[in-house]
Amino acid sequence: MDTQLLIPGIIFGLSMASVYFLMSIGLSLCFGLMRIISLDQLLYYSIGAYLTYTVSVYTGSVWLGALAGVAAGGITALAVERLIFRRIYERELTFSMITSFGILIGGIGVIKAIWGVVPRPVRMPTPELISIVGTEVPVYRLMVVAIAALVYIGIWLFLNKTITGKAIRAGIEDVEHVEGLGINVSRLFTITFVIAGALSGLAGGLHAPLIMVDPNMGLEVLAFVFMVVIIGGLGSIKGTLVSSLIVGQVVSIGSLIYAPLALMAPFAIMLLILLVKPTGLYGSTLVKK
């Protein structure tokens, strides 16, 4: 294939992978620790994108907007956790799925009420192009990839070097033992949920300049994000990273080969992987108590 197309294709794929990764890492952590499927993460993604839009319109800075998106994602997640999730941690998985889906569509209603249904464009923070091996690539996409890489390092350090992170890792293995030691797991749950919400908000903020911001954007990306989480295996950070790279590249390179295939191929891959390993690439056979 033509390298003139291939390199921008790979960069595009990496930037998509970054967005998917930022969203699915939170989902994965929430599943691992609390055993919930939190579809409402897609709402924090939309909120992040909308705040980026609003703040960038008023201040002219997309970066400030993305920061506001992170804060809003985290704060909304905190409120939702305190009001709703706290009551349903003990229930089975389907329960959290349905409830969080209710939060998602309810939240989409709120977004429509505030911002209306018309899709909104967000300006690229840096319109420059950079030349890589003779092809022009937008700098912003590279920045998105860099930020996602920094987040990965940050999360890794958090989980491996801080005591809270260690407690979260221990909780992913067995939350009851963590509780038995006397660690306040309910605080641990809140921290994890807020981190997940903030990262989803960040994903929305970073994604906003690359797409049109519209109320249903969460639903559109939902299938892809869950595909990432499933291919990687729920509850595994490393799996999430690997599978978001796979999905991002398949979507991007696939569209160079045959456009309709691009959106379908990841699903086909997912089905294949689940056939071979029903828990995903890095997923263990976690069973809800």
């Binding site: 260690k166 006397g182 797991v185």
Partner: peptide, 29 residues
């Protein structure tokens, strides 16, 4: 966790330590 902090510790029978963490990290927790 409050019961544990009030001085009643339960050691379950499953012998499940946090296998992904080192012994030091287990004690740190």
């Amino acid at each position: 966790y409050d019961v544990a902090r009030m001085g009643v510790k339960y050691v379950p029978q499953d012998k499940k330590v946090f296998s992904d963490l080192t012994v030091r990290e287990n004690l740190e927790l």
